[in-house]
Design a protein around this nucleic acid. Structure first.
Ligand code: FES
Ligand code: FES
Lengths: 134, 134
DNA sequence: CTTTATCCTTCAATTTCAATAGGAAAATAT
DNA sequence: ATATTTTCCTATTGAAATTGAAGGATAAAG
């Protein structure tokens, strides 16, 4: 199960992508519509901004908006950014790999099956974008 | 990423299934071979026993052994038992479902995509057994 | 120069995770 | 009987992560 933080991030992005306008969107609005604690959401959006996904404007008329077209933002990118690894085991992770010191990857059946799961999952999450959420 | 506990459970079962003998296997042996802290492993195996996956015998010559044929134990069963939900969101979980109070499932794109991920994952984890790990 | 809204740091509560301690109970061997 | 082996059970610990709040700094607009 994804951490609440990741769920919130995905929900917030979904909300933003669903709107007809391009923003900017207020933290407070997103939070109240998607039932996300404001202060928690604040830190999440800031993180997405620092990663280049979002941009923001301060002051009246300000808020958050997309820094890239939603159709270019893979869901896998968001999840790796907020959640970390997508794979179920360290030894099958592409971006967060860590060797198993207690078994031989070449012969390990667990490794093989978990790689299969990973490839299946990535084939979805790397081919769907924030735009596909609307 | 799976919790360490779940990883340990899967590794222990893999180890047991890999052996030519049917056991019983000592906690201490499994633990030292798969680099799992003994006391932690102890509680994991006990949990698997209480769930009917394993059985055990005390005293000299005792240890843990399979209570059902490894080819009948789905990996999904182990993971749900130790880890909990396999799905990425509560609203797409089959065994641990919880409604989203902030969006309409029928129209929710996030829900739809995460269901796709779930189905893909389950098609693997429900069709592979502990026997397939060897 | 007031209002609005993000930015940033710090912190606190809670929960979860990982692991250990220590003994009780059961089975076997001597 | 008694000692040894091994699982069973409860309790507890310590560390880390998660979730979230407080409060002020900064920037922009009116
Ligand atoms: S190589 Fe990682 S579980 Fe075997
Ligand atoms: S219904 Fe669960 S995320 Fe939309």
């Amino acid at each position: 199960m994804l951490a609440k933080k990741t769920q919130y991030a995905l929900k917030a992005l979904t909300y933003m992508a669903e709107q007809h306008s391009a923003g900017p969107f207020l933290i407070a609005d997103i939070g109240s519509k998607k039932k996300i604690p404001i202060k928690f959401l604040e830190s999440i959006l800031l993180e997405l901004k620092k990663a280049g996904i979002l941009n923001s404007k301060k002051g009246k008329g300000g808020g958050y908006f997309f820094n890239q077209d939603p159709s270019t933002i893979q869901l896998a990118t968001i999840m790796r950014l907020i959640e970390g690894p997508i794979a179920l085991l360290p030894c099958v992770s592409l971006h967060f790999y860590k060797k198993c010191n207690d078994c031989n990857e070449k012969k390990c059946g667990l490794n093989k099956i978990m790689k299969e799961v990973r490839d299946n999952t990535l084939s979805i999450l790397e081919n769907r974008t924030v735009q596909d959420l609307v």
